[in-house]
């Protein structure tokens, strides 16, 4: 994926197994979000192919990708600001379902994430952390089979981060996930495999333990001062 002269993501060969949970790390500007935008078809790659469950999806539209079961929590929360939490979730559920099923799906997520207290609150009245949490709820409500999470714990309290880790492990029982994160503690608690992005390329793909102890990974991050062991 090129932007003028900038090569944001280049020659990436990335394969994710059915039901796998993978973490994506890399310093700022490594191309992680751009990679996600290619997968959700917000951007169309200048070259290369994308396959989903054996099907070539390189040239389909964003909404079609979503209908195939790809859900994303974007880096900057993308929610319906003027609407209540309940209305947000109802929209998410009605994307691929109709009738009574919609209410049932909403109730289920409300229960699961304990959202009863904020159900009537408008999104623009919530804190950054709460909005992150609601976006996660939106994604879960739409029942994707591949979930992309771009820095889901940014702006969350320690307790919320732990809650998120538990949730991700739970989601992984029924869906594959790719999670972009900087927090190594968090990564260690959820993933077995980690892919390291650096300057638009895949730098390393290894088990979490190996990656966390790899000196070269430390160096990549050191320049940016964000490697928190």
């Amino acid at each position: 994926m090129h932007f003028g002269g900038v090569k944001a993501v280049e020659s990436i060969t990335f394969t994710l197994g059915e039901g796998e949970l993978r973490c994506l790390i890399g310093p700022n500007g490594a191309g992680k979000s751009t990679f996600f935008r290619c997968l959700t078809k917000i951007y169309r790659p200048n070259a290369g192919k994308i396959y989903f469950r054996g099907r070539d999806v390189t040239s389909i539209a964003t909404h079609e990708m979503a209908r195939l079961g790809v859900g994303i929590k974007t880096q900057v929360p993308s929610v319906f600001d003027g609407l209540t939490v309940h209305e947000n979730l109802t929209l998410a559920a009605s994307a691929r379902h109709r009738g009574r099923e919609v209410g049932r799906m909403v109730d289920e997520v409300v229960e699961r994430l304990s959202l009863q207290a904020v159900l009537g609150a408008r999104l623009d009245r919530l804190s950054h952390g709460e909005r992150q949490w609601i976006e996660l709820a939106i994604v879960i409500t739409s029942k994707p089979s591949l979930i992309l999470l771009d820095e889901p714990t940014a702006g969350m309290t320690h307790a919320e981060v732990e809650h998120t880790a538990t949730l991700i492990r739970e989601l992984n029982k029924s869906a594959a996930l790719i999670v972009v994160e900087h927090d190594m503690q968090f990564i260690r608690s959820i993933a077995t495999h980690v892919t390291v992005f650096h300057e638009g390329r895949i730098f390393l793909e290894e088990s979490a333990e190996k990656v966390l102890h790899d000196e070269r990974v430390g160096e990549i991050y050191l320049g940016k001062g964000a490697f928190a062991k």
């Binding site: 959700t40 917000i42 909404h63 079609e64 979503a66 993308s78 929610v79 319906f80 929209l91 739409s142």
Partner: peptide, 22 residues
């Protein structure tokens, strides 16, 4: 449902597409 969808579109078109609405 149609009414709710168009209001959602007014609020956040990108999110609607990411959810699967054309």
């Amino acid at each position: 449902r149609f009414g709710k969808v168009i209001i959602g579109m007014r609020e956040n078109e990108k999110r609607m597409e990411l959810l699967g609405f054309d």
